[in-house]
Amino acid sequence: MIAPATPKTFKVRIKRQDGRDQPAYWQEFEVERRPSQNIIAVLQQIAANPVTTAGEQVEPVVWDSGCLEEVCGSCTMVINGHVRQSCSALVPDLLEDADDNTITVEPMTKFPVVRDLFVDRQRMFDNLVKVKAWVPIDGTHDLGEGPKESPEKQQERYAISRCMTCGCCLEACPQFTLDNDFLGAQAIAQAYYFNEHETGKKLKGERLEALAGPGGVADCGNAQNCVKVCPKEIPLTEAIAKAGRQLTVHAVKKFFTGK
């Protein structure tokens, strides 16, 4: 419920960029308040009528979105300085701790900007290839049931499997930058996830070798921002620690057995 004293409009400052490697600039829009309004709705309102507070008709803002239910991971943005999904970023909450009745919306900084708020997160998917994030099944033919699994193990794996590759953990990670090769919490957690599956284990050695290389799990500086910004509340730091343990054991074994 909007209190009667609440202004009918608010301002949105959007960091825009016309293309890759182009200079970024800010534009400000005045937007009408509506009930249950989130940042996506705000962007839709702007798209329908892209006129800045200065009265300038501009090109509509480009952004990435999908399900709008916080499961597809598309609409990650930096809103009021914090990375999050814009579909679940509600205007009243954002205005509550904002100055001047203004919300700022920026693209993620750890990925190259395609245009405006739309960034290229291909690196996250490439990292999944690096850690061989799949179960090496024999094929799609009917070979009966999969391996049994305890409910506890399922619960542990399920929590990690909810990762929607949104990139919040990487955006907030001080160790993950545009130009280094750190894998980050997402890929490390996925590597651990597959190491814990009975068939997925077959590639454990290869995954751990990938985690041992440059940008691997040892590069994690334990700032633990990832777990705090994860919209799916995935126990990322625990997954990283568990991957670290697997790697320690693996390295010791390898040292003594040579394989």
Binding site: G81, H82, A172, P174, Q175, F176, T177, N180, F182, D219, G221, N222, A223, Q224, N225, K228, V229
Partner: peptide
Amino acid sequence: SGKGNVAAYSYGDNIRYS
């Protein structure tokens, strides 16, 4: 190889990272 971001994410663990 990293770049601190304490200003944006002032969590205790992150401050200790920096």
